[in-house]
Design a binder for these strands. Structure first.
Lengths: 342, 342
DNA sequence: ATAATTTTCGGAAACGATTCCGAAACGACG
DNA sequence: CGTCGTTTCGGAATCGTTTCCGAAAATTAT
């Protein structure tokens, strides 16, 4: 059927109407009688006509597409985010084009800079690095942007909707670790400026940073956790708790500690951030902070779509979600016996 | 800068040339002198001109976009697949629009049926269900399609490139389990027709299917594994091995077995399929079959892009990858002592 | 019945690129 | 210096819609 290309003109001719009328029929337009509309719809069906999206976009200068730029779709909560964004977009008739920036600051900048080439009505970006140029590029992007922000206090003059956490993850973790009696708390993460606030919370919470208790790896991976465990285990004076920048690292830590014969949580408590499903299948199950990936992503999408639909400019929203700590087996109150046993 | 919309005409006027020439300059076209090209490129830079993708697409009827339809971006190896596809596409100047079919057969059909509306040059689809209508729709789609196929022998007349596994995963697992001395082997999966071949391999490998040793859950999740473990544990005569449809289920099984005091692998061996990174952090580490998600996806993308670029029609490729079994702690040779201990 | 409104419809001009085809410019050669 | 062959360039048509605006038809008022 539908040999090669059926245009709106073919439909018009077949239905014995003008092309303007056909257009109105497709778009539920005003000023068209019910009977002609159904007749047109019917011949559209018969001919297998599909409106050419490019032509429509050219005319109305909207593509019904948004871009989602994330560091790496394979990591941590990003699948959740991609899912939530796609669901929200679909509900509004939008499609999402997926972009991985590979955690590469330059790639992030390029996405924003070249957003016009991307043929999208808006952009949701989850940046890892926040160089000044990023803000500048966002401000002059000329396309609505929502920022999903984990880990850094953002410039409030940024011309974009921002959805983030209240930056209390770190404090939640540290308060908890202190409360269960730990006082030699270590930090395992990536470069300090990547998810800055998680580290800053650590600095704030300890009286004085003991450099030997801070491990910066290359990424957020299991390997980083593994290496961190090796590192801490090699110290003459081990920490009694580790605050991990995310669950992957936490799991790597716990796993490696087990292999090294270090008991978790008796000797070392471990707490992660993300609260992904794997924290519950690790053994021991790992305490973690829920960072509301789906909720954050959904809201970011909704704000963006609203901005697009209503052509809002300026008046940017900044929404904070509150993280919640979920305590599991990897962090419990020290018992005297456990202490001595060390 | 770049007030609102700079068109190719503006550039032409500024550079003192015709629009045809500007077009040639953008597309590295033939028949243009080096000096005028650089001059044009320069004024493009000055004016901040960005070619309108819709107009280009309308004329050349190519969008430089492909669609990737998967069941659920959050599941199992799908992030790997999405990553690999995006990387391959990017390398060829293509963007990918992400679609989740939610493991919903109707949604899968709709994607194929309405592919024309999607404004893409091609489609990569990873179906869960394979109703006959799917094949029909694919054959009349009118857009190049690559199928990433796990779990079912496909109609060879399908007019699409197909990348799949050799369907030997199941046999690998069953051979292995027998070889390590297990003879009461159970199966834990979803509906038998979803990843059909994994189950069929099970049927083929056991002399006679003992219905009590087959557990069909609702999905591929940890929960399904957990419930399966409960179920098997409740049997008067427990299996001595479980072949799980994927790693999530396997992990759920192992985890629940541990909670129930069932020793893995001494009392029950468990083997999964996917070989995702979590199999190595589980305790015991879980034997699994590597199903080459990234490789399969990359090839599917390459085939599709080649077909698009070279406008190949017909002559469909069907490529099989070979799965590999990776033996870990969750499945080992039975020792006499362990046996008796049961 | 005619006049005045309101609905419904069609023609044609955009939208912003690509590309065919002919003209102009250029160089080489006799 | 004229002819011819290449390059290089520009005009104009085209892709398939949406939408403005005026005309025709239908409806209501007079």
């Amino acid at each position: 059927m539908a040999s090669k290309k059926v245009t709106i003109e073919d439909v018009a001719r077949h239905a014995g109407v003008g092309i303007a009328t056909v257009s109105r029929a497709i778009n539920n337009g005003e000023g068209i009688s019910a009977k002609t509309r159904t007749r047109i719809l019917q011949t559209i069906e018969e001919l297998g006509f599909v409106p050419n999206t490019s032509a429509q976009s050219l005319k109305v200068r909207l593509t019904n597409q948004i871009a989602l730029a994330v560091p790496d779709i394979r990591n941590a909560i990003i699948p959740d985010i991609a899912w939530a964004v796609e669901q929200a977009a679909k509900a509004h008739g939008y499609r999402v084009v997926q972009i991985n920036t590979a955690g590469n600051a330059r790639a992030e900048l390029e996405v924003v800079r070249d957003i016009k080439k991307l043929h999208v009505d808006g952009l949701i970006i989850m940046p890892l690095a926040y160089p000044k140029t990023l803000s500048e590029l966002i401000n002059k992007a000329g396309v609505p942007i929502s920022v999903i922000n984990y880990g850094k206090q953002l410039d409030t003059t940024l011309q974009a909707d921002i959805v983030c956490l209240s930056m209390l993850e770190g404090q939640l973790v540290m308060d908890h670790l202190k409360q269960i009696g730990r006082n030699r708390i270590a930090y395992a993460g990536t470069q300090k400026d990547v998810i800055e606030d998680r580290y800053l919370a650590y600095e704030r919470a300890v009286d004085r940073v003991d450099a030997s208790l801070v491990y910066f790896g290359d990424d957020f991976s299991l390997q980083t956790g593994t290496r961190a465990a090796d590192y801490f285990h090699g110290l003459t004076h081990m920490p009694d708790a580790v605050y991990a920048v995310n669950d992957m690292v936490a799991i790597g830590l716990v796993n490696r500690f087990k292999e090294l014969g270090v008991r978790v949580p008796e000797e070392v408590a471990v707490v992660g951030v993300d609260n992904n499903q794997w924290t519950t299948i690790s053994s021991p199950q790992i305490s973690s902070v829920s960072i509301m990936g789906s909720e954050v992503a959904r809201l970011a999408a909704e704000l963006l779509l609203k901005r697009i639909r209503e052509q809002i400019v300026g008046d940017y929203e900044k929404v904070q979600f509150e993280p919640r700590l979920i305590v599991r087996e990897s962090s419990v109150m020290l018992k005297r016996s456990s202490l001595n046993h060390t």
